[in-house]
Design a protein around this nucleic acid. Sequence first.
DNA 1: TAATATTGTTAGGTAAAGCTAATTTTCAAG
DNA 2: CTTGAAAATTAGCTTTACCTAACAATATTA
Lengths: 151, 151
Amino acid sequence: MENRVSGALESYLEQIADLQKIHGAVRTSDLAERMGCKRSSVTNALQRLSEKGLINYQSYRPVTLTAEGKKTIAALSRYHGILADFLENILAFPEEFAQQEACQLEHRVSPCTIERMRVYLEFVAGKDGDSGQNTVTSQFNDFIKSKKELP
Amino acid sequence: MENRVSGALESYLEQIADLQKIHGAVRTSDLAERMGCKRSSVTNALQRLSEKGLINYQSYRPVTLTAEGKKTIAALSRYHGILADFLENILAFPEEFAQQEACQLEHRVSPCTIERMRVYLEFVAGKDGDSGQNTVTSQFNDFIKSKKELP
DNA sequence: TAATATTGTTAGGTAAAGCTAATTTTCAAG
DNA sequence: CTTGAAAATTAGCTTTACCTAACAATATTA
């Protein structure tokens, strides 16, 4: 068995963590709804996550995260945050799109590149200083608008 | 049959185009070498690419691209260029890494985000003007170095 | 040109991630 | 405390993308 976790399984894991926060227990049907798949596919995913030691799972019993699972989620959630920040504050996407896109990218962009995006965010924050006005981001926003105004 | 082309098939297609440019003919073994897989997997991929109408393929005959295949490659190659440019000139990665990473990302980042990266590149180019000196990129390079110097 | 080496394909297998349909467990009401 | 509905699981199938081993076609070269 390949021990690395695929993007699909990572997503399940995140939804599990989120549902746990909200509802305490994690139900197969809720997961299916969130993942946009059938309950049977969820069961299958839970079994594989369990084999990989990321969740505690027994048939018909409530699912919980292992320490390993929590660690995985912590990393993912950090990646998500950096990517969403980058998309919103560097590339000037609206927050909602940034969040959506970050959900995809957190499984697909290398840690190295994500880390570099974090450094770039720091760099730009430093350039903008405490001014608040006329930041690089707002300049870029204007730039985008100026492009759209002349089609 | 799902008519969309997966990331894996897209990669085969690109390697085919590249080999065609270099060697004229495209050999299964060369493709296998490039893709880091076995010859039998290549045959399988060629059959699927052919079913999707992206290449002309018959057993033991040289492979060629269809018009549709060429169009797909043109789009991909454009994405690759933008991503590599962004990685090298915004995120200040060395060219080789930028190229490698772009190969992965071109199949994974949404066209919308890639397009926005292109606009950002334009924006920064505009800011830097013709100066050449003290560009945003070179400032960021210095910033990275300054971070590394104090561990 | 015939023998051999290389290259390409087929057949059959695995794992991931989904599906439907059938079955089993749990739970809520009567 | 039984029973029927809802929820979860199992069984069996699909596709993608890989694998090995066996076989077929093409090339090389003696």
